[in-house]
Simulated assay, not measured.
Amino acid sequence: MLREALNLWKDRISGHIDARDTERATLLSWPSKPQIQVDGDPVPYEYDKLIFAEYLQDRKVEAYFEIGQYMEGEEAKGSVTGVLSNGVEYESGAEYKQVPRSSLQGVIVIPSPLQVGDRLIVSRLTGQRYYVHGKDVRPDGG
């Protein structure tokens, strides 16, 4: 019975991030085949041992926008309305009667904030893997 309880406990915590067990690392290569050097470890960790938080990676958002034009006195003004793929609506401009001018559909790329040499906050997971939480923002970077 104790063995079953221990196995159940191990299953529940596999891959668990313990916030008290964070370490610092340096990003050695990015974005293809990322590699980090954890402070105090002699060998860098390769991309197959790393898991990066989603907000640290390049993100692509499909979007559809309509560009409108209206006159304010004799000055032409414009506005943009649109819908992103996740359902978020975007609107700019004033509430005037507008004439649709054109539409634009495409992908917005939000680039990763990471660069080679950045100091990172990481947590060790089971199986000698690391979860990368984000950049270390301490003033001394270390």
Rank of each mutant, 00 (worst) to 15 (best):
L2T: 01
L2A: 10
E4M: 14
E4P: 12
A5Y: 10
A5D: 13
A5C: 13
L6G: 00
N7W: 00
L8S: 13
W9I: 07
W9N: 02
D11P: 06
R12Y: 06
I13W: 04
I13H: 07
I13L: 07
I13P: 01
G15V: 03
G15E: 05
G15L: 09
H16E: 13
I17A: 15
I17P: 03
D18A: 11
D18Y: 05
A19C: 11
A19W: 08
A19N: 02
A19F: 04
R20I: 09
D21A: 09
T22V: 07
T22H: 14
E23S: 08
E23P: 08
A25S: 09
A25I: 06
A25T: 01
T26F: 10
L27G: 02
L27Q: 01
W30H: 03
W30Y: 14
P31G: 10
P31M: 11
S32I: 13
S32R: 03
K33Y: 12
K33S: 04
P34Y: 02
Q35L: 13
G40L: 01
G40M: 03
D41A: 12
P42N: 05
P42C: 08
V43L: 08
V43D: 09
P44F: 06
P44M: 07
Y45E: 10
E46C: 15
D48S: 14
I51F: 07
I51R: 14
Q57V: 02
D58E: 15
R59V: 14
R59T: 15
V61G: 02
E62D: 14
A63T: 09
A63S: 06
Y64Q: 15
Y64L: 04
F65Q: 04
E66W: 08
E66F: 05
G68S: 14
G68N: 11
Q69Y: 10
Y70D: 00
M71N: 12
E72N: 09
E72F: 03
G73Q: 07
G73S: 12
E74Q: 11
E75G: 11
E75Y: 05
G78E: 12
V80N: 04
V80K: 05
T81D: 11
G82V: 05
G82K: 11
G82P: 12
V83L: 10
L84F: 02
N86K: 12
G87E: 01
V88E: 13
Y90T: 10
Y90P: 01
G93P: 01
P100M: 10
R101K: 09
S102D: 12
S102I: 03
L104C: 15
V107T: 06
I108K: 01
I108T: 06
V109L: 07
I110P: 09
P111R: 11
P113Y: 04
P113L: 09
L114H: 10
L114A: 04
Q115C: 08
Q115T: 14
V116S: 08
V116F: 04
V116L: 01
G117Y: 02
R119Y: 04
R119S: 02
L120S: 01
V122E: 01
V122W: 02
V122M: 01
S123Y: 08
T126Y: 02
T126I: 15
G127D: 12
V132Q: 06
V132C: 04
V132M: 03
H133D: 02
G134E: 06
D136G: 00
R138T: 13
P139Y: 14
D140N: 07
G142F: 13
G142Q: 15
